[in-house]
Amino acid sequence: MSEQKQVKVHVEDVNKSYGSNHVLRDISLDVHPNEVVVMIGPSGSGKSTFLRMLNQLEMPDSGTILVDGYDILDKKTDINKVRENIGMVFQNFNLFNNYTVIQNVMLAPVQLGKMGKEEAEKRARELLETVGLADKADMSVGSLSGGQKQRVAIARALAMDPDIMLFDEPTSALDPEMVGDVLDVMKDLARSGMTMIIVTHEMGFAKQVADRVVFFESGKIQESGEPEQIFNAPKNARLQEFLSKVMQA
């Protein structure tokens, strides 16, 4: 784990309910620079909701969330500025259907004045190269496979040069043979030192890449620790039960 004292994401006592459904209860979590945190747990345990709060796609009912030192729940904080530094990758890719592959990657840097069109295009081609899709640059997004779409989505998020990347079940909507390509890109990213928070059901990947694994269940963090500990010596009874189910499958 990193030696740095500085905290990238600081979450304290966050609660969230949808009506009578209490989806997050008193969640606290710190994420340090260059750390890769993987969140696991059964469906509906609140891990995706939690992840979406970190860039304010969802609002908590109470609690504190600091990202890069910014209190993102403070109305005075310019959430757009904070979001520029947080890349997000969705389960369903959400590529912009009205643009080509490279236009998807270039849109935000150009619109936000981060770079000129030419520079953005050059950078976009580099990013597509790193995700292995340089040859698809000028295709429409509709003609890509799921795995290719997700890699474009990662390139699009990276185009803003973020220092945190959020992944919301990035491989759940993919055919099994596509999963590997996407995970490889994510592994490269982790190796490069990116701070990453990942919600996933890929236990092998978690074991391999995570600095820390966090187990969500019933809106609570039941247990967290290094992958070794979580997967080989789980203490929490629910985690044990969860692991026995997913490992069987």
Binding site: N80, V82, R83, N94, N97
Partner: peptide, 12 residues
């Protein structure tokens, strides 16, 4: 998701 993706990039 189109709006969410656009907003999460920092677009207004």
């Amino acid at each position: 998701g189109q709006m969410e993706a656009a907003r999460s990039l920092g677009l207004s």
